[in-house]
Every structure is written in structure tokens, then in C-alpha cells.
């Protein structure tokens, strides 16, 4: 025969166990929700801070229309050209460097020639050094990421139309960056091969 004190104690224990179980379940659900929310939250964080070289939101033609050049912040942009070993094109930049300011659109030219006697399709990717400056380097139009077919003995100009975001001048990490190198690499496009957009990690 249990006494009333013992029964009250058991009820108290049972109530506390329920409370603990409720908190543990809530924590588990919260962690699950936080893990789902982490991807959009991290993307939002990267967009605002620019960490990791992620795309910065807000780039559009309207922004280009209203950009104000930062004329006292001159940046030297140098150009580099590479071809993969199996691609027999001659590919080179047509200017060694240009001097640009953030917020001003700029044009530069590469030249590619197919010296072989059969048509060759090339596809290019690009790299920006230093990497942190890549987030501010915006290409309006160029020749990358699309197949470019050069007929035998054909030589073409390949323009790059780009600008450096005016926010470049406000970033304290960019204070010492006054040289940006733009590198393009052409690869041969094989028939039927699906080329993924490359990333360097």
C-alpha cells in the first residue's frame, strides 16, 4: 500500500519527465529546421558580405545605367590566354593591359585562330586573380561557356565587355588590390560530351 507522499512524488517525476521529453523533442525539431534553413541563410549571408566569391545580388542593366565611375581608383587589368594541350588553336590577348576604374564599362579583345584544316569547336572558361576581386568583376558579354566554332584557317576577334563593381572602392579588403588578372582557357568541345560549369576548390 503506497502512501500519499510517495504517490505525489511519482506524479512529480512523471511531470518532469514529460517536460524534459518535450524540450528534447523541440530541440531536435529546431535543429532539423535550422539545418534546412542553413542553405538559404548562408546564401543570404554570402550575398551581403561577398564571402566565398558568391554572386552578389543586384547586378542588372539598370544598375549599369546608374553606375557612377570612381575615377580616383585606377585598377590595372592584365590578360592571360591558355589553351588545353589537345586544342590546336592560337589564342592570345590583343592588349597586354588596360587601366579601368570601378563603375565604368570596359572592352578588351582576345584573338583566336584555327590553323588546322578542319573545323574545331572550342569552349572556354575564365579565372580572375586575386580571387577576392572576382566578386567585383562583372562580365556583361564575352565568349566564355559557349561553344565557339572556328572553321579551317579562320581567325576571329573575341571581345570581352566587363566592368568592376563600384563597391570595389568601398571594400577594405580591396585597398591593396590594384592589379587584376583575367585568364581565359579554351578547351576542345568533344562531340556529345556534356561539359559542366567548372569550379575550383
Amino acid at each position: 500500500s503506497s502512501n500519499p507522499f510517495q504517490r505525489a512524488q511519482e506524479d512529480e517525476w512523471r511531470r518532469r519527465n514529460k517536460t524534459v521529453l518535450t524540450y528534447v523533442a523541440a530541440a531536435a525539431v529546431g535543429m532539423l529546421g535550422a539545418s534546412y534553413a542553413a542553405v538559404p541563410l548562408y546564401r543570404l549571408y554570402c550575398q551581403t558580405t561577398g564571402l566565398g566569391g558568391s554572386a552578389v545580388a543586384g547586378h542588372s542593366s539598370d544598375q549599369i545605367e546608374n553606375m557612377v565611375p570612381v575615377k580616383d581608383r585606377v585598377i590595372k587589368v592584365t590578360f592571360n590566354a591558355d589553351v588545353h594541350a589537345s586544342l590546336q588553336w592560337n589564342f592570345r590577348p590583343q592588349q597586354t593591359e588596360i587601366y579601368v576604374v570601378p563603375g565604368e564599362t570596359a572592352l578588351a579583345f582576345y584573338k583566336a585562330k584555327n590553323p588546322t584544316d578542319k573545323p574545331v569547336i572550342g569552349i572556354s572558361t575564365y579565372n580572375v586573380v586575386p580571387f577576392e576581386a572576382g566578386q567585383y568583376f562583372n562580365k556583361i558579354q564575352c565568349f566564355c561557356f559557349e561553344e565557339q566554332r572556328l572553321n579551317p584557317q579562320e581567325e576571329v576577334d573575341m571581345p570581352v565587355f566587363f566592368y568592376i563593381d563600384p563597391e570595389f572602392a568601398e571594400d577594405p579588403r580591396m585597398v591593396n588590390v590594384d592589379l587584376i588578372t583575367l585568364s581565359y582557357t579554351f578547351f576542345e568541345a568533344k562531340e556529345g560530351h556534356k561539359l559542366p560549369v567548372p569550379g575550383y576548390n
Binding site: Y126, G134, I140, N151, N201
Partner: peptide
């Protein structure tokens, strides 16, 4: 240079251009 290996934490994600690729000027019109 663009094929250099990047050790450590630096990462670079190439982005396509805003308005795509220029068509090739095959006949040198411009």
C-alpha cells in the same frame, strides 16, 4: 594560370556573363 591548383580555403566560382556570349564575327564586319 587559370589551371593552377588552389590549395587551402580559397575558392572561385565562375559566373556566366550577364548577356551571354558574343556571336563570333566570322566575316570581320566590325
Amino acid at each position: 594560370m587559370s589551371t593552377a591548383m588552389n590549395f587551402g580555403t580559397k575558392s572561385f566560382q565562375p559566373r556566366p556573363p550577364d548577356k551571354g556570349s558574343f556571336p563570333l564575327d566570322h566575316f570581320g564586319e566590325c
